[in-house]
Design a protein around this nucleic acid. Structure first.
Length: 309
RNA sequence: GGAGAGGUACCCAAGUGGCCAAAGGGGACAGACUGUAAAUCUGCUGGCAGACGCCUUCGCUGGUUCAAAUCCAGCCCUCUCCA
C-alpha cells in the first residue's frame, strides 16, 4: 500500500527544500499544511514557495483565500483530503508539507467532521459575559456540559472554553468526546520530521527577518493594509505581519521590528517542537551543519521510495 | 573640582529594620492545544532537598542591632547639573 508522505518540523528546518529535492526523484505533488500560506498576497512573511518551485512541482492549498476570508482546520481537512484523491488519481505521490501540527493531526488522525461551525453571536455573548463577570464565570458553564474540558481547560483560555461551549451548544455533546472518536478517513503514512539541534535552528532563524525585510516584507504589509485588510484579522496577526504593522504604526524602529520577528519566530519554533514531541509516528531525520544535506536527503529518499511509491 | 541622583536576582524595576529568596514587568526555560493554531493559554525562574528545611544572595569592606536589601562609616563604580 502506497503511503502518504508527510514532511514536517519546526519553522526554518528545511521542509520545503526537502520536498523539492525529493520531487526530483519521486513524482510528488505538495500539499501545504501551513495555516498562513493559504492567504493570497502574503508571500514574503509566510515564506511561501516561489513561483519557480511551484512551476516545477505542483502545489496545493496555496493562495486559496483572501486574508479576510474564513479558513480553519476543518476546511484544511476537507481541501487536503480532496487534493490527496486528486493527486493519487493522477498517479502521483501526495506530500503533506508544513509546520502546522494541528492541521496535520486533523488530517492524519482525522478529527471527525462535525457540524459545529463558529457561531459568532454566541462567541460575542460569551465574550461579553467574560468581560462582565470574569473568565471563571464562563468557564464554570462547562462544569455540567463538558466536565472533561471544565477540568482540563484553564479559565483564562477563553478561546477554547468558548469553543467547547459553542460546540456543545451546537451538537449537544462535549467536544472532548472527539478525542476518542474515530475519523471517517484514515491514511497510512510516512511522516518525516526534520530535526535540528536547537541552537543551530535558532541561528538559522536569526537573520531571517533581515532577509525578509530586504525582500520587501514591509512593502508587502503596507500593500495589504492599503487593500483594506485590517491588522485585526487573524491572518494579519501571523508572524511578521503583526510586527510589521507595529512598525508601520510607528511603534517600533526597523531594528526592533526585526528583533521582535526573530524572537517570536524562535518561540513559534519552540511551540512546534513541543507539539511534535508528543505527536506519534514521526520519524526524525537529523539535519545540521555537521551533516551534509545530501545525507539527510538520502535518508529521507530511501524511506520515501520504499514506502510511498 | 563642586552639587545632586543612583548601584537589588539574566534585564528593567519595587522594596527604606523583622511578615524578604526579595512585588511587578521583560527575557529564558517548560507545558497545554480537536473549526481562525504563525493563534491562544498555563507553569516556572538563587542552590540543595521528596518534604519539614538548610545554605548563598540586594556594589565592596567594616560597624550598629536580638534582627539589615533596608541604619552608620569608609571605599569603588554609574548618571545628571555646575565648573
Amino acid at each position: 500500500m502506497r503511503e502518504l508522505l508527510v514532511i514536517t518540523g519546526p519553522t526554518a528546518s528545511g521542509k520545503s527544500r526537502l520536498a523539492m529535492d525529493i520531487a526530483k526523484e519521486v513524482p510528488l505533488e505538495i500539499i501545504s499544511a501551513d495555516s498562513m500560506q493559504v492567504y493570497r498576497h502574503m508571500d514574503i512573511g509566510t515564506d511561501k514557495p516561489s513561483m519557480e518551485d511551484r512551476k516545477k512541482v505542483r502545489h496545493h492549498l496555496l493562495d486559496l483565500k483572501n486574508p479576510d476570508e474564513q479558513w480553519s482546520v476543518e476546511e484544511f481537512q476537507r481541501f487536503s483530503e480532496a487534493a490527496i484523491d486528486e493527486i493519487r488519481a493522477r498517479g502521483n505521490v501526495p506530500a503533506i508539507v508544513g509546520g502546522t501540527g494541528f492541521y496535520i493531526r486533523a488530517l492524519l488522525k482525522g478529527f471527525p467532521l462535525v457540524d459545529a461551525p463558529p457561531n459568532l453571536k454566541f462567541r460575542r455573548e460569551m465574550q461579553d459575559m467574560a468581560t462582565r463577570s470574569g473568565n471563571e464565570a464562563v468557564h464554570d458553564l462547562l462544569r455540567d456540559r463538558d466536565p472533561w474540558s471544565w477540568e482540563h481547560l484553564h479559565p483564562n483560555d477563553l478561546k477554547r472554553v468558548i469553543r467547547a461551549l459553542e460546540y456543545y451548544d451546537a451538537v449537544g455533546h462535549p467536544i472532548s468526546l472527539r478525542r476518542e472518536a474515530k475519523s471517517s478517513r484514515r491514511y497510512e503514512y510516512l511522516m518525516l520530521g526534520l530535526q535540528w539541534e536547537r541552537q543551530e535552528l535558532y541561528r538559522r532563524i536569526d537573520g531571517r527577518a533581515e532577509e525578509q525585510v530586504r525582500r520587501g516584507l514591509i512593502e508587502e504589509v503596507r500593500g495589504l493594509l492599503q487593500m483594506g485588510y485590517s491588522k485585526e484579522l487573524a491572518s494579519m496577526n501571523g508572524l511578521c505581519y503583526k510586527e510589521s504593522c507595529m512598525f508601520l504604526e510607528g511603534l517600533l524602529t526597523l531594528d526592533e521590528t526585526k528583533e521582535l520577528i526573530e524572537r517570536n519566530t524562535r518561540r513559534y519554533a519552540k511551540r512546534q517542537m513541543t507539539w511534535f514531541a508528543r505527536e506519534e509516528g514521526i520519524i526524525w531525520i537529523r539535519a545540521g551543519n555537521d551533516r551534509h544535506w545530501e545525507d539527510t536527503l538520502d535518508e529521507a529518499l530511501q524511506m520515501v521510495k520504499a514506502r510511498c511509491l
